[in-house]
Simulated assay, not measured.
Amino acid sequence: MKFKVILASVKTNITDTVVDAAKAAGATGATIIAARGTGMREAKTFFGLSLEEPTDIIMFLLEEHIARPVLTAISTAGKFDKPGTGIAFVLPVESVVGLESQLERFKQEVKDQYF
């Protein structure tokens, strides 16, 4: 079985919306990591304190065949067509450990679907 990982950087106020959209498109879960970043525009400051909006990195480990629909759902839900809303990208996964219980479920689903 081949896997892909999607990493999406989003503002924390839309994290749940993006995760829900990804799950509706077939993702089984997500890992959310608090982050901060910098972009083309400088963060606003107030008396020397940065007023950057908090950011989350959402990580989705997916079967290869659902990576594209999940990426599309993330982009739509996050409104990535608007500047400064977020970014997401897909990376190949060479090896996976720790998914043994899920792999058994995947195998059963494939068996049920085709046999």
Results as ranks from 00 to 15, higher is better:
Lys2Gly: 06
Lys2Leu: 06
Phe3Asp: 06
Phe3Trp: 09
Lys4Ser: 10
Val5Thr: 15
Ile6Ala: 13
Ile6Trp: 11
Leu7Pro: 04
Ser9Pro: 05
Ser9Arg: 12
Ser9Leu: 10
Lys11Phe: 13
Thr12Ser: 15
Asn13Glu: 15
Asn13Thr: 14
Thr15Lys: 04
Thr17Pro: 00
Val19Thr: 03
Val19Asp: 01
Asp20Arg: 04
Asp20Pro: 04
Ala22Ser: 08
Ala22Glu: 05
Lys23Val: 07
Lys23Gln: 05
Ala24Trp: 05
Ala24His: 06
Ala24Arg: 00
Ala24Asp: 01
Ala24Leu: 05
Ala24Gln: 02
Ala24Asn: 10
Ala25Val: 04
Ala27His: 01
Thr28Lys: 08
Ile32Arg: 07
Ile32Leu: 01
Ile32Lys: 07
Ile33Gln: 06
Ala34Val: 07
Ala35Ser: 15
Ala35Cys: 09
Ala35Tyr: 09
Gly37Trp: 01
Gly37Ile: 08
Gly37Pro: 02
Gly39Ile: 14
Met40Lys: 12
Met40His: 14
Met40Gly: 13
Glu42Ala: 15
Ala43Ser: 14
Lys44Met: 07
Thr45Ile: 12
Thr45Pro: 12
Thr45Gln: 12
Phe47Ser: 07
Gly48Asn: 04
Gly48Lys: 06
Leu49Phe: 13
Ser50Lys: 03
Leu51Ser: 00
Pro54Lys: 06
Pro54Gln: 09
Thr55Met: 04
Thr55Leu: 10
Thr55Glu: 10
Thr55Pro: 03
Thr55Ser: 02
Ile57Arg: 03
Met59Ser: 14
Met59Val: 11
Leu61Ile: 13
Leu61Lys: 06
Leu61Arg: 04
Leu62Tyr: 03
Leu62Glu: 00
Glu63Asn: 05
Glu63Cys: 02
Glu63Trp: 00
His65Cys: 01
His65Phe: 08
His65Asn: 10
Ile66Gln: 06
Ile66Glu: 00
Ala67Asp: 02
Ala67Lys: 00
Arg68Pro: 00
Leu71Met: 13
Leu71Gly: 09
Leu71Lys: 11
Thr72Val: 07
Ala73Leu: 03
Ile74Asn: 02
Ile74Ala: 03
Ile74His: 08
Ser75Tyr: 10
Thr76Asp: 11
Thr76Pro: 02
Gly78Phe: 02
Gly78Met: 01
Lys79Ile: 05
Asp81Cys: 12
Lys82Ala: 09
Lys82Met: 10
Lys82His: 07
Lys82Gly: 04
Pro83Arg: 00
Gly84Glu: 08
Gly84Ala: 01
Ile87Tyr: 03
Ala88Trp: 06
Ala88Lys: 00
Ala88Asn: 06
Ala88Tyr: 04
Phe89Val: 05
Phe89Asp: 04
Phe89Asn: 07
Phe89Ala: 04
Phe89Tyr: 07
Val90Asn: 07
Leu91Asn: 13
Pro92Met: 14
Pro92Val: 14
Val93Thr: 14
Glu94Gln: 09
Glu94Pro: 09
Val97Pro: 01
Leu99Asn: 08
Leu99Ser: 09
Glu100His: 12
Glu100Trp: 08
Ser101Ile: 08
Ser101Cys: 10
Gln102His: 11
Gln102Asp: 09
Leu103Ala: 13
Leu103Asp: 12
Arg105Asn: 11
Arg105His: 11
Phe106Val: 10
Lys107Ser: 15
Lys107Ile: 14
Gln108Cys: 03
Gln108Asp: 13
Glu109Tyr: 05
Glu109Ile: 11
Val110Ile: 15
Val110Tyr: 15
Val110Lys: 15
Asp112Lys: 05
Asp112Phe: 01
Asp112Cys: 03
Asp112Ala: 01
Gln113Phe: 15
Tyr114Ala: 10
Phe115Asp: 12
Phe115Lys: 10
